[in-house]
């Protein structure tokens, strides 16, 4: 048994909200800089130049990379040997989000009711996913998610007979419909399998995986590589103004599914794909 205090969780969440919004995750940072050298369209190149300058200004002058500092998605893996003391975990997480968004001068973009739409003024509540795992540690990932790209994400309940061909068609259709709205170059998180809600969660988890890490399943790895290639052949390009860099990465997560189904979720992130992970 190991004790972890709610204060420690709050402090870490606060710092992670700020860090994620000022400093681009290293995997995305590397790929967006490489994109500038790979892009051949002159308009696309000038967009990528602005995006690279933007990342530098954000880090050096402490200005959020994007004004949409997101709805705060939190994945928390709790070792079953851990006992959390001093209060409620969910309250501790939301307190950390509120402090981070206030102290970090981050935009408060959350409304308390989807119909009545009154701003909660501290960006809470976050969207929190708990997982119980082995061990005596807590792993927290904070991923502030912008909604320009979130709005362009989709779910398809495909048939088993549809197979790889229809999966590809659906992903490309989603990317084309997203077009300039999702702020390309994008990162594409894909969930395949499970149930209706499980595939959406898989797609979200796919977005927080480094785009330098390919799936360990050979057929999925092949699909990731082929999809990246085909997405970049659409010609949508940086900012949707034409070019060959439309996506920086495609990550796919899978799960067993029902004999009758082939659920597919495509969660799109703009180039500001923020994710910070810490282990306590």
């Amino acid at each position: 048994m190991r004790y972890i205090s709610v204060e420690e969780i709050t402090t870490n969440i606060k710092e992670m909200c700020i860090e994620a919004n000022y400093k681009l995750a290293s995997d995305v940072d590397k790929h967006i800089r490489e994109a500038y050298t790979k892009e051949t369209s002159s308009l696309g190149k000038s967009v990528l130049k602005q995006l690279n300058e933007n990342i530098d200004i954000a880090a050096s002058e402490s200005i959020p990379i994007c004004q949409d500092t997101g709805m705060t998605i939190v994945f928390i893996k709790i070792g079953q040997e851990v006992h959390i003391k001093g209060g409620l975990l969910e309250e501790a997480i939301n307190k950390g989000i509120g402090l981070g968004y206030w102290e970090g001068y981050l935009r408060k973009s959350v409304v308390s009711d989807p119909i009545l739409r009154e701003n909660t003024k501290d960006n809470t509540p976050g969207v929190i996913y708990y997982e119980i795992v082995a061990g005596d540690k807590i792993e927290i990932t904070v991923a502030p998610k912008g909604f320009g790209s979130e709005n362009m994400s989709r779910i398809y309940m495909l048939k088993p007979a549809d197979g790889i061909e229809e999966i590809k068609h659906a992903v490309l259709e989603t990317v084309k419909l997203a077009g300039p709205n999702a702020c390309p170059p994008i990162v594409v998180g894909i969930g395949i399998g499970g149930s209706f809600e499980k595939c959406a969660l898989l797609a979200k988890r796919a977005l927080i995986r480094s785009i330098d890490i390919r799936s360990d399943k050979p057929h999925i790895r092949k699909l990731e590589e082929e999809l990246l290639d085909e997405i970049n052949k659409t010609g949508i390009g940086p900012a949707g103004l034409g070019g060959k860099i439309t996506a920086l990465g495609v990550n796919i997560e899978t799960y067993p599914t029902h004999i009758a189904g082939l659920p597919l979720a495509i969660n799109i992130s703009c180039h500001v794909n923020r994710h910070v992970t810490r282990v306590i």
């Binding site: 200005i63 990379i65 004004q67 001068y105 935009r107 973009s109 709205n181």
Partner: peptide, 22 residues
């Protein structure tokens, strides 16, 4: 079409890019 992030003390405005027009 823009909703900025808050200005730090001494700054004019925070981050200030465009949102989706449609």
């Amino acid at each position: 079409y823009m909703g900025p992030s808050p200005a730090r003390p001494g700054s004019v405005i925070g981050s200030a890019g465009p949102t989706t027009a449609s």
